[in-house]
């Protein structure tokens, strides 16, 4: 062939090159590429984690800043709520105390009335008893008037 081209030698060169490709791919390029890819992934994961952390911390910061800006208002609200609650409680206590006092007075009044009625009734009964006794005595004696006086005298002496 022209230029000393020899198909057999071309094929031998190609065989050599395929052999070289196999050696290169399995012993050098492949393992090195695999290592480089794994390292790339390692850094990408690290980067991703860092970004997520940053986003989270930014969000938290924004939340805290909002909370911090609202904290004055919140304190005022809580304060007024507490004051209102205390005032309501005070009023309730006073109201209860008044009602209780009123009930006590009412009870005492009722008791005194009851006592009064009882003493009046008792006195009436006693007077009636005296009257009926005196009447009986008068009926028994000759001179009712004298008997009455004697009996009264006797009673006063006894007292």
């Amino acid at each position: 062939m022209p230029l000393n081209i020899n198909i057999q030698q071309v094929l031998l060169h190609m065989f050599n090159f395929v052999l070289l490709f196999g050696i290169s791919y399995f012993l050098l390029y492949g393992p090195v590429k695999k290592f480089m890819d794994s390292r790339k992934k390692y850094y990408e994961d690290m980067d991703e984690a860092a970004r997520e952390n940053l986003e989270m911390s930014e969000k938290m910061r924004a939340d805290y800043e909002t909370k911090l800006s609202n904290v004055g208002e919140e304190i005022d609200t809580l304060k007024s709520e507490a004051v209102k609650e205390a005032s309501e409680r005070r009023e309730e206590i006073v109201k209860n105390a008044r009602e209780e006092a009123k009930a006590i007075v009412e009870e005492a009044r009722k008791q005194s009335e009851l006592e009064h009625e009882r003493s009046v009734t008792s006195a009436k009964q006693e007077i009636e008893a005296y009257v009926s006794k005196a009447a009986e005595e008068i009926v028994k004696e000759k001179d009712p008037y004298a008997s009455f006086l004697d009996a009264a005298k006797k009673d006063s002496n006894n007292e």
Binding site: L3, N4, I5, N6, Q9, V10, L11, L12, H13, M14, N16, F17, V18
Partner: peptide, 15 residues
């Protein structure tokens, strides 16, 4: 050099 041989250069080109 291997590729200074025309057969080597042809092999490389064809590959």
């Amino acid at each position: 050099a291997p590729l200074a041989d025309i057969n080597g250069a042809i092999g490389m080109g064809v590959m």
